[in-house]
Design a protein around this nucleic acid. Structure first.
Lengths: 201, 201
DNA sequence: CAGTATAGTAAACGATCGTTCACTTGTCAA
DNA sequence: TTGACAAGTGAACGATCGTTTACTATACTG
């Protein structure tokens, strides 16, 4: 029943994440589920609606299950509130949690890949991809840095450039994890420690 | 004649780079060129061969036209020779040239995007993508750093971690350029200067 | 028990897919 | 001038696409 609808969603997501939306046929999805394609239309009104549902689910996941990774809510939406008390331990914890979220989470990881495959086709998906894992994290990291400088936790400097410097290794290590690397978490950890050692007060 | 074959190649590449191989039909390519799809088969024996030709062209471009950007030949193939005399000015020049190459070059830029769209479907394309713009540049940057340390141009340290730190901003800025950012070159320049200031001798 | 959603199947729909083929045109060498 | 070849057209091929439909079995509800 509703469990089937869920299985369809995640199966479709994993196929979209590997091959891209257009390259996956409704038959492919049905076959992977062991049912006929006609059955899919009892749960989703068409293929596009299935795609949209994965996006919708991600937006919900961001403000709920993301919490279990210890991240601030709506991490990639540049939330303006509640960052004033962020210290270096928080930042490190948030950052490592985000890395695990985008590389290990059974929904977020394939969704990120799917978005990366759709980013050039649709302006909307391109924007979403940027906000989630590219420029978005840079901007809210810069916000955090500005607050930390104001609060005397961080040496003064160009917050935007420092945010790019801080977030860039995470972004690179995510891409390397997609390529099969599995030491990203430990490398990231030491890079964060190194950065904190240079800028913390 | 042969100019037509070239127009087909670049037109197909641009469509593949936006939508992905499977999402682009032979009719789409023909229509973008103002000809019928039957004509394409006079120049390429099938759609797959057209895709393969773009890859082949890129491999040739790497060791020829890449030179005009002032980069070492076969930049992404971890060439082992001729790096011994690299100094910080060379490194900065190479790095900025590589950024322009992957974001501005009329062939390399769309090919990089196309590869990113195919990286999860085919192990071969995933490997190529990694070697070209992800782990590949990290590895050969680490090689350069090791040599610079040995030659007394760079303070001693973990070459691999430093290479990740050095290359990551470039990788991030390339992705941001795909999202419409156009200040990548100047940001990258100042990040390189900052890095060199910390590690040069 | 009768009635009615629900979840699934199998077949069919028109459209489009990649590819081929018969045919026309233009060009250049013999 | 003729003949061969290269480049392009347009129609057709079978296969597959996303979607709809008719039908069946199961389970819940009055």
């Amino acid at each position: 029943m509703n469990d089937t609808k869920e299985r369809i969603l995640t199966t479709a997501l994993h196929l979209f994440a590997r091959d891209g939306y257009e390259a996956v046929s409704v038959s492919d999805i049905a076959q992977a589920l062991g049912m006929t394609k006609g059955a899919l239309y009892k749960h989703y009104k068409n293929k596009r609606n299935l795609f949209d549902s994965t996006i919708q689910r991600m937006l919900e996941l961001d403000s709920t299950a993301a919490r279990q990774y210890g991240m601030p809510e709506q991490a990639f939406q540049a939330d303006e509130s509640g960052y004033d008390q962020v210290d270096w331990d928080d930042l490190k914890r948030f950052t490592l949690a985000q890395f695990r979220f985008w590389t290990e989470d059974s929904f977020a990881c394939p969704l990120r890949r799917m978005l990366s495959l759709e980013q050039y086709r649709s302006e909307e998906m391109g924007k979403l991809y940027q906000e989630m894992v590219v420029s978005g994290p840079v901007h809210y990291t810069a916000d955090i840095f500005r607050r930390m400088m104001k609060n005397g936790r961080m040496k003064p400097g160009d917050a935007d450039a420092l945010a790019a410097q801080f977030y860039a290794p995470m972004f690179l290590l995510i891409a390397m994890a997609d390529g099969g690397a599995n030491d990203g978490l430990s490398v990231l950890q030491s890079l964060i420690d190194d950065f904190a050692g240079r800028w913390r007060i």
